[in-house]
Amino acid sequence: MPNEAGRAYGLTALCPIKHGAEAPQPGKPARSFAARTRDLLQDLNEAAESPMACVPNTYLCRFLVLDNVAYQGDPAKLDRLRSSYLVFVADLHAGKKSEEGLRRYLEGMWEHAEPTVRSLWEHCVGFDTVSSSDAFVRYVKRCQVENTLYFNGSTDEPLAEQLKNLYLKQEFSRFAFEHQGKKGAELQAAFGQFLTRTRPHDLSGPTWKPGARTLDDAVIDPNPPPQYLRSVPTGASR
């Protein structure tokens, strides 16, 4: 199946948007369903954090409204799309059983971002019958088009692994720079503290927060160790 590359999966969904416009509100010009859907997408950019940050195993994803295809000019023929489409493109970790992984992913999306999903898809054809995660999975699969080629230029680990790796890379680099030239027992003790602080096997934290844009708000640790175990070297607060 060309939808996946290893354990990474490329979901490509074209969800047709209903023709017509919203009912006019007093004092407000009505918007077509397609334009309203795009408004909603654009509004997502105003929040400090994307709602997709809550959806497990989203590496990257994008939304756009496709109104039409481009015309290449004579002698090419002119094509016009008869519907606008909400295009949802996600790169995600699906695991070895990819189709089952996709289902789990979409269930997670419903579970963690249901209000966003409902509002974005509200104007799509046939979405009014979707009211459960099962129905959402079925709906997206009906809108899915198969990839002809999916290319993974990165890794295919679960997102939590990727984020933990990034956290560890950043922290270990700092450790290596700060402890250059340290010897034997001192080095060993410092490294021991480093392991205690960074907990390499603990995916829950400390790790990088999905979607973090600056180093200041990148590190999260939902289960910080007791104070006496915490040893924060200089510079780690950056």
Binding site: Y59, C61, R62, F63, L64, V87, N165, L166, K169, R213
Partner: peptide, 28 residues
């Protein structure tokens, strides 16, 4: 001419390039 603009784009790691993600895996 044929490009379509994205309306909302999300990355789980805005500070990482694909090189960084791969490097981080080796580090771990």
């Amino acid at each position: 001419h044929n490009e379509v603009w994205t309306s909302h784009y999300y990355s789980a790691y805005p500070m990482a390039a694909s090189n960084d993600v791969k490097s981080a895996q080796r580090v771990k």
